[in-house]
Design a protein around this nucleic acid. Structure first.
Lengths: 121, 121
DNA sequence: TATACTGTGTATGTTATATATGTACAGTAT
DNA sequence: ATACTGTACATATATAACATACACAGTATA
């Protein structure tokens, strides 16, 4: 597992952590049944409070990415390749959707947007 | 001038207002020297506090979109077509950039992203 | 010309919510 | 018993949003 905190934006810490774990589960980097490191361990390593990590873990559980056994640990849930791919598209779509409105207001065409993406990527 | 508040997301009110004014200035809907309605007027119309509107107006001024004459009002700054277009690209690029990182983490190719955009737009 | 009035933006102080924290508690394995 | 897990509670801090009172510019009018 691998988490990198580079808080350039003002995105909440728990959300950053949450996003990084989900992507790693979706891309298969974290396999089913994988036992996540303890929230204390992660908190210590990232110099972040236990609570913040727990909040991220809670979101992960609510979204069905992990399951928890109190006193033991947290494990990556079993997801089929299809399920993971659906989550991937769902996440990506949601993220892009939030920008599309502004693009339209700016009177940018579909082609304009694609051109910008080609530049950035 | 036209502002619509549909606070579906948890984007701050002042930011929503700010974004809508900038886009209208960038697209030329609000011409240079145009006198914005008083912050009191806007606040009343949108059922929002004066402070919230003032905050949006402050951001607009800081970004060079408007200028203020105390006691008189706030006016749209003079921007060339080029300057407006630069702002447009700048804004769009910033917005999309914030999503691209996640896309890459999800191992989505440039083509994947473009395909998603074509679907949404 | 002085004064009062009405419009503008500005500054002060308050409240609610969300982010992030530390510390003490409870379950499970060895 | 001990050393790990996750959990719950109370709390500080920052931000968003608010109501209200203030200061300044323009204009009418005595």
């Amino acid at each position: 597992m691998n988490i990198i905190i580079t808080n350039n934006t003002n995105q909440p810490l728990y959300e950053i952590v949450y996003e990084q774990i989900t992507t790693q589960i979706i891309t298969g980097k974290l396999p089913a049944q994988f036992c996540l490191p303890s929230i204390r361990g992660v908190a210590l390593e990232l110099s972040i409070s236990v609570i913040t990590i727990k909040k991220a873990w809670e979101m992960l559980e609510r979204q069905g990415f992990i399951y928890t056994i109190a006193g033991k640990g947290c494990y990556v849930a079993t997801l089929t390749a299809d399920e993971r791919n659906n989550k991937r598209i769902e996440l990506a779509t949601a993220k892009i959707s939030s920008s599309i409105g502004l693009m339209k207001s700016l009177e940018l065409s579909k082609a304009d947007i694609i051109s910008i993406i080609k530049d950035i990527y």
